[in-house]
Design a protein around this nucleic acid. Structure first.
Length: 228
DNA sequence: GCGACAG
DNA sequence: ATCTTGTCGC
C-alpha cells in the first residue's frame, strides 16, 4: 500500500509543525468505514549504535481468532530527532517502507502512540491515517498530554482524557489490576469504537495483539542486528 | 525561570 | 525508545 497524498518534506521543526497544523484539519473523528476484516499493528524500535530505526507491520485476521495473515519489516537511518509531539516525523519513513511491501491492505491500523491526544491533535495515528486515508487508532502505553481521574481496577473500565476542557481520548483498563493504556482517535473512527476495538484486540494482555505482535517482530530484528 | 514530555 | 540491575516464574 502507498500513501495517497504527496507529503512536503519535513526538514526542520518548524516545517513539521506546519505539516501538523495543515493536516490536523483533515482528521475525521467519526466512524467512516464499512467492514473490518484485517487489522494491522505497527511498531518501530531504535538501534542506538547504528542510528537505525526498525519498523514492523503485522496484519491480523480480525474476523476469526486474530491469526497473523501477513508481516512486513523495513529499516532506515533515523533522520529526525525524537521530539515529544513530533514523533511521527521520526517514525513514519521506515513505517512507509514497511507498509509498501504489504499485499494485504488492512481495514484498520492500531498505532503505537497517540492519535488526537496530542498538543496539536495530530499524533502518529492521525498522521498515518491521513497519509493512507485509512481508519487508525492511537494506542499509547504512557501519557503525552491531558488529565484523567482514577479508573476502576476491572477490565473495560475507562475514564475520559481531558485537555483544555476537551475530550481527547480515554484511559482504558484492558486487563484487571493492570496499568491502563491511552486510547485516542487516529482517523475515521470515533472514540467509543476505538475503545471497543482495543478491548476486543486485548483479550489476554495489556496491549492489543496487533501491537504485541509488531513489537515481537521488531525485537526479533533488533536481536538479529545486534548479533550480526 | 521550572517541570513535563507518545517512542 | 534504550540501558542496567535485580527478582520472579516457567
Amino acid at each position: 500500500m502507498r500513501p495517497i497524498i504527496d507529503h512536503p518534506p519535513w526538514i526542520t521543526e518548524s516545517d513539521a509543525l506546519k505539516v501538523q497544523y495543515q493536516l490536523a484539519a483533515k482528521v475525521i473523528t467519526e466512524d467512516d468505514f464499512s467492514k473490518i476484516h484485517y487489522v494491522a499493528g505497527v511498531d518501530v524500535a531504535y538501534e542506538k549504535h547504528s542510528n537505525q530505526l526498525i519498523a514492523a507491520v503485522v496484519v491480523l485476521n480480525a474476523t476469526s481468532t486474530l491469526q497473523i495473515v501477513e508481516t512486513a519489516t523495513a529499516t532506515g537511518r533515523a533522520q529526525f530527532p525524537y521530539i515529544p509531539g513530533l514523533f511521527s516525523f521520526r517514525e513514519l519513513p521506515p513505517l512507509v517502507k514497511a507498509l509498501e511491501q504489504l499485499s494485504t491492505e488492512p481495514d484498520l491500523i492500531i498505532c503505537d502512540g497517540q492519535g488526537i491526544a496530542h498538543p496539536r491533535r495530530f499524533g502518529l495515528a492521525c498522521h498515518l491515517g491521513i497519509l493512507y486515508n485509512i481508519p487508525t487508532i492511537g494506542c499509547g502505553k504512557t501519557r503525552l498530554i491531558g488529565e484523567a481521574g482514577t479508573i476502576a481496577p476491572t477490565r473495560g473500565s475507562f475514564t475520559e482524557l481531558i485537555d483544555n476542557e476537551e475530550v481527547i481520548g480515554c484511559v482504558l483498563r484492558t486487563q484487571s489490576d493492570v496499568k491502563p493504556i491511552y486510547v485516542s482517535i487516529g482517523h475515521r473512527v470515533c472514540l467509543a469504537t476505538a475503545c471497543e476495538w482495543v478491548l476486543k484486540l486485548s483479550p489476554k494482555y495489556r496491549l492489543p495483539e496487533t501491537t504485541r505482535q509488531a513489537d515481537q517482530l521488531v525485537n526479533q530484528l533488533m536481536k538479529k542486528a545486534n548479533n550480526g
